[in-house]
Amino acid sequence: MTVEAGSVGERSMLERSPMARLPDRALRWILTALSFGILLLLVYFFGKLSLESVDVFQHQGILSFVFSNDWNPSKSQFGGLALLFGSVATALIALVIGVPIAVATAVFIVELCPSRLRSPLTILVELLAAVPSVVYGLWGVFFLIPRLRPFEQWAADTFSFLPWVGGPVAGPSYFIAGLILAIMIIPVVSAISREVISTVPTDHKEAALALGATRWEMIRTAILPYSRSGISGAAMLGLGRALGETIAVTLVIGNAAVIGHQIFDQGYSLAAVIANEFGEASAVPLYSSALFACGLLLFIVTLVVNGLARYIVSLGDIERRVERARRSERKSAAAPGGAA
């Protein structure tokens, strides 16, 4: 196509004819439009949720809805703090358990495992994503809760010196919900981490090994820093999944609108309350408005949490840059001496 373009009079030889540039422009516009479609969609979504939530905010006040711990729909009291707490607590437990395992799995699959095991292992880990959330929940109820209970009690008794541990163990709990969420986020976090890790340039890895690094040192100095932002992106997806998971959490968290004293207590979450109570609420305008407000609150929490996480990641970037600069300074300062 460029050959034709070169023969046209006024344009330079390398410039394309307007016709030839059309597909490029069109593509650019379409892609941009689709991307901003997401913005529009979420603005509409936000507006719709806000509109549906107005009732309960007028009834209760926004602050009281968010910060009072008193969820009692039969008395028209809608204080959602316990729900908010449950959402955040379970998502944190899920991240703490799930992300290290997922990243380690990714590193193992890409770097450590024999190559013929790579493909089957990949599929096996991804298979975790194939299990529907209702099945995770039911498995949690009928398998995990009864079997883990003695271990939980043992852990609660043994580690009672830790904060948020100790006391009698309830069957359904923050911990069980967090554990199931951890399992559910592993495939997503692991898959993306794997893609990222597998593209670390061989040069970097070989350079590290050539400098005498052990396998682990190579992973620590070449792979993890290079894939950092990709992994944090993966963790963000995992966090989103954990905050928003509905059915599985509803089945295993106990659905008690209280703030538990420890991780083995029963609780509730914003997503769970909607799934669990909407069937009853939809005939009562104030009640259903409160549930929409829970959705709105969760949306805002996700906005804030994601914003915070971005900020932290960006801080890390700067620190790393400074550190790297210092190190290279030190190295260049040391190099002449070493050479001599």
Binding site: V141, G171, P172, G254, N255, A256, A257, N276, G279, E280
Partner: peptide
């Protein structure tokens, strides 16, 4: 009071008839 979900003063929760039965 009464309702499809109430603030239980005591006890543990279980999901569904089957959950309560199993518990």
């Amino acid at each position: 009071g009464k309702g499809k979900t109430v603030k239980w003063p005591t006890g543990t929760g279980a999901k569904g008839n089957d959950g309560v039965a199993a518990a």
